[in-house]
Protein backbone atom coordinates (compact mmCIF):
# COMPACT_ATOMS: atom_id res chain seq x y z
CA UNK A 1 0.00 0.00 0.00
CA UNK A 2 1.27 3.48 -0.73
CA UNK A 3 2.39 5.44 2.24
CA UNK A 4 2.11 9.13 1.69
CA UNK A 5 4.18 10.12 4.63
CA UNK A 6 7.50 8.33 4.58
CA UNK A 7 9.43 9.93 7.39
CA UNK A 8 11.73 6.95 7.41
CA UNK A 9 14.71 8.49 5.69
CA UNK A 10 17.60 8.59 8.11
CA UNK A 11 17.51 11.89 9.86
CA UNK A 12 20.68 13.70 10.76
CA UNK A 13 19.19 14.07 14.18
CA UNK A 14 17.82 17.25 15.56
CA UNK A 15 18.68 20.37 13.71
CA UNK A 16 17.94 23.78 15.11
CA UNK A 17 15.19 25.70 13.34
CA UNK A 18 14.09 29.26 13.87
CA UNK A 19 11.04 30.96 12.44
CA UNK A 20 8.44 33.43 13.52
CA UNK A 21 5.07 31.75 13.99
CA UNK A 22 2.26 34.26 14.33
CA UNK A 23 4.70 36.89 15.42
CA UNK A 24 6.40 34.80 18.08
CA UNK A 25 9.90 33.59 17.46
CA UNK A 26 10.08 29.83 17.75
CA UNK A 27 13.38 28.08 18.29
CA UNK A 28 12.88 24.41 17.80
CA UNK A 29 14.91 21.32 17.17
CA UNK A 30 13.50 19.47 14.22
CA UNK A 31 14.45 16.55 12.05
CA UNK A 32 16.18 17.62 8.91
CA UNK A 33 13.45 16.17 6.71
CA UNK A 34 10.57 17.50 8.79
CA UNK A 35 7.51 18.73 6.98
CA UNK A 36 6.30 22.20 7.93
CA UNK A 37 2.78 20.92 8.72
CA UNK A 38 4.16 18.42 11.22
CA UNK A 39 6.36 21.00 12.86
CA UNK A 40 3.48 23.45 13.15
CA UNK A 41 1.06 20.91 14.56
CA UNK A 42 3.31 18.83 16.75
CA UNK A 43 5.93 21.29 17.89
CA UNK A 44 4.85 24.86 17.33
CA UNK A 45 1.42 24.40 18.89
CA UNK A 46 -0.64 25.36 15.86
CA UNK A 47 -3.29 22.67 15.94
CA UNK A 48 -5.52 25.03 14.01
CA UNK A 49 -3.58 24.13 10.89
CA UNK A 50 -5.36 21.05 9.60
CA UNK A 51 -4.24 17.93 7.81
CA UNK A 52 -6.80 16.76 5.31
CA UNK A 53 -4.77 14.73 2.86
CA UNK A 54 -1.05 15.26 3.25
CA UNK A 55 -0.53 15.38 -0.47
CA UNK A 56 -1.42 18.86 -1.57
CA UNK A 57 -4.95 18.18 -2.70
CA UNK A 58 -7.26 19.73 -0.09
CA UNK A 59 -5.75 23.01 1.04
CA UNK A 60 -6.68 22.49 4.71
CA UNK A 61 -3.04 22.89 5.69
CA UNK A 62 -2.57 26.29 4.03
CA UNK A 63 -0.45 28.79 5.93
CA UNK A 64 1.17 32.05 4.98
CA UNK A 65 4.93 32.03 4.61
CA UNK A 66 6.09 35.62 4.40
CA UNK A 67 2.56 36.54 3.45
CA UNK A 68 2.31 34.01 0.60
CA UNK A 69 -0.15 31.11 0.85
CA UNK A 70 1.66 27.77 0.97
CA UNK A 71 0.51 24.19 1.45
CA UNK A 72 2.39 23.31 4.59
CA UNK A 73 2.07 19.59 3.91
CA UNK A 74 4.18 20.01 0.79
CA UNK A 75 6.68 22.36 2.36
CA UNK A 76 9.85 21.26 4.11
CA UNK A 77 10.20 23.04 7.39
CA UNK A 78 13.68 23.98 6.30
CA UNK A 79 12.23 26.00 3.43
CA UNK A 80 10.39 28.17 5.92
CA UNK A 81 13.37 28.70 8.15
CA UNK A 82 13.73 32.32 9.27
CA UNK A 83 10.43 33.16 7.64
CA UNK A 84 7.31 34.74 9.04
CA UNK A 85 4.67 32.10 9.23
CA UNK A 86 1.03 32.98 9.80
CA UNK A 87 -1.52 30.34 10.67
CA UNK A 88 -5.21 30.70 11.43
CA UNK A 89 -4.34 31.41 15.06
CA UNK A 90 -2.47 34.52 13.94
CA UNK A 91 -5.34 36.22 12.14
CA UNK A 92 -7.23 37.72 15.07
CA UNK A 93 -5.95 40.54 17.21
CA UNK A 94 -6.70 39.35 20.69
CA UNK A 95 -10.45 38.89 20.71
CA UNK A 96 -10.98 41.21 17.77
CA UNK A 97 -11.54 38.76 14.99
CA UNK A 98 -10.18 39.54 11.57
CA UNK A 99 -13.20 40.60 9.47
CA UNK A 100 -12.74 37.52 7.35
CA UNK A 101 -13.11 35.36 10.46
CA UNK A 102 -16.17 37.20 11.64
CA UNK A 103 -17.82 36.97 8.24
CA UNK A 104 -17.13 33.25 7.86
CA UNK A 105 -19.29 32.70 10.92
CA UNK A 106 -21.91 35.28 10.00
CA UNK A 107 -22.40 34.33 6.37
CA UNK A 108 -22.20 30.57 6.59
CA UNK A 109 -18.68 30.22 5.18
CA UNK A 110 -17.91 27.63 7.79
CA UNK A 111 -20.04 24.56 8.48
CA UNK A 112 -18.01 21.71 9.90
CA UNK A 113 -15.10 24.13 9.97
CA UNK A 114 -12.35 21.70 9.08
CA UNK A 115 -11.49 23.42 5.83
CA UNK A 116 -11.99 26.84 7.36
CA UNK A 117 -8.45 27.57 8.59
CA UNK A 118 -7.13 26.93 5.10
CA UNK A 119 -9.73 29.15 3.47
CA UNK A 120 -9.17 31.89 6.04
CA UNK A 121 -5.44 32.22 5.57
CA UNK A 122 -5.73 32.09 1.81
CA UNK A 123 -8.48 34.69 1.62
CA UNK A 124 -6.86 36.93 4.21
CA UNK A 125 -3.80 37.02 1.95
CA UNK A 126 -6.06 37.85 -0.97
CA UNK A 127 -7.68 40.72 0.88
CA UNK A 128 -4.31 41.97 2.02
CA UNK A 129 -3.27 42.25 -1.59
CA UNK A 130 -6.60 43.23 -3.06
CA UNK A 131 -9.10 44.62 -0.53
CA UNK A 132 -12.01 44.57 -2.97
CA UNK A 133 -11.70 41.48 -5.13
CA UNK A 134 -14.31 40.50 -7.70
CA UNK A 135 -16.15 37.19 -7.29
CA UNK A 136 -13.97 35.73 -10.00
CA UNK A 137 -10.83 36.81 -8.16
CA UNK A 138 -12.14 35.30 -4.95
CA UNK A 139 -12.82 32.03 -6.73
CA UNK A 140 -9.36 31.96 -8.21
CA UNK A 141 -7.83 32.57 -4.79
CA UNK A 142 -9.62 29.60 -3.24
CA UNK A 143 -9.41 27.20 -6.14
CA UNK A 144 -6.81 25.10 -4.32
CA UNK A 145 -9.02 24.60 -1.28
CA UNK A 146 -11.67 21.93 -1.08
CA UNK A 147 -14.77 22.27 1.04
CA UNK A 148 -17.21 19.41 1.26
CA UNK A 149 -19.90 21.15 3.29
CA UNK A 150 -20.67 24.58 1.95
CA UNK A 151 -20.56 24.22 -1.82
CA UNK A 152 -18.34 27.37 -1.72
CA UNK A 153 -21.18 29.81 -2.38
CA UNK A 154 -21.39 31.07 1.19
CA UNK A 155 -17.59 31.13 1.37
CA UNK A 156 -17.52 33.55 -1.53
CA UNK A 157 -20.30 35.53 0.19
CA UNK A 158 -18.21 35.67 3.35
CA UNK A 159 -15.15 36.96 1.57
CA UNK A 160 -17.21 39.59 -0.20
CA UNK A 161 -18.72 40.71 3.10
CA UNK A 162 -15.29 40.85 4.73
CA UNK A 163 -13.98 42.93 1.90
CA UNK A 164 -16.81 45.40 2.46
CA UNK A 165 -15.92 45.68 6.13
CA UNK A 166 -12.25 46.10 5.36
CA UNK A 167 -12.75 48.78 2.78
CA UNK A 168 -15.14 50.64 5.06
CA UNK A 169 -12.50 50.63 7.76
CA UNK A 170 -14.77 49.27 10.47
CA UNK A 171 -13.45 46.83 13.00
CA UNK A 172 -15.10 43.81 14.48
CA UNK A 173 -16.34 43.83 18.07
CA UNK A 174 -14.50 42.15 20.90
CA UNK A 175 -16.74 39.57 22.51
CA UNK A 176 -15.03 39.87 25.88
CA UNK A 177 -15.22 43.61 26.45
CA UNK A 178 -17.36 44.73 29.42
CA UNK A 179 -20.99 45.43 28.68
CA UNK A 180 -22.08 48.73 30.17
CA UNK A 181 -25.61 47.45 30.42
CA UNK A 182 -26.17 43.84 31.28
CA UNK A 183 -29.42 44.05 29.38
CA UNK A 184 -28.57 46.00 26.27
CA UNK A 185 -31.63 47.20 24.47
CA UNK A 186 -33.78 50.19 24.14
CA UNK A 187 -36.68 51.56 25.92
CA UNK A 188 -40.15 50.94 24.72
CA UNK A 189 -41.33 54.46 25.05
Amino acid sequence: MVQHRLPMLPSAGDVPWVASVNGVEKQLNIENNAILLDVLRDQAGSLGTKRGCDMGTCGCCSVLVNGEPRLSCLTLAAEAEDCEITTVEGLAEGHHLHPIQAMFTECGGSQCGFCTPGFLVVTSALLEENPSPSDEEIKCAIEGNLCRCTGYQQIVDSVRAASEILTSGESVADSTSPKSDPHPGFSRE
Binding site: G48, Q101, A102, G108, G113
Partner: peptide, 21 residues
Protein backbone atom coordinates in the same frame (compact mmCIF):
# COMPACT_ATOMS: atom_id res chain seq x y z
CA UNK B 1 -28.22 32.78 12.61
CA UNK B 2 -24.47 32.23 12.79
CA UNK B 3 -23.52 28.84 14.18
CA UNK B 4 -23.05 29.02 17.93
CA UNK B 5 -19.73 27.23 17.69
CA UNK B 6 -18.57 29.21 14.68
CA UNK B 7 -16.04 31.28 16.60
CA UNK B 8 -14.17 28.19 17.70
CA UNK B 9 -13.85 27.15 14.12
CA UNK B 10 -12.64 30.42 12.66
CA UNK B 11 -10.02 30.93 15.33
CA UNK B 12 -8.54 27.47 14.96
CA UNK B 13 -9.59 26.52 18.46
CA UNK B 14 -12.05 23.84 17.48
CA UNK B 15 -10.55 20.50 18.42
CA UNK B 16 -11.19 17.75 15.92
CA UNK B 17 -10.15 14.13 16.38
CA UNK B 18 -6.47 14.55 15.71
CA UNK B 19 -6.30 17.75 17.77
CA UNK B 20 -6.84 15.92 21.05
CA UNK B 21 -3.37 15.64 22.48
Amino acid sequence: TALVDGRWKVTGQAQYGDDIR
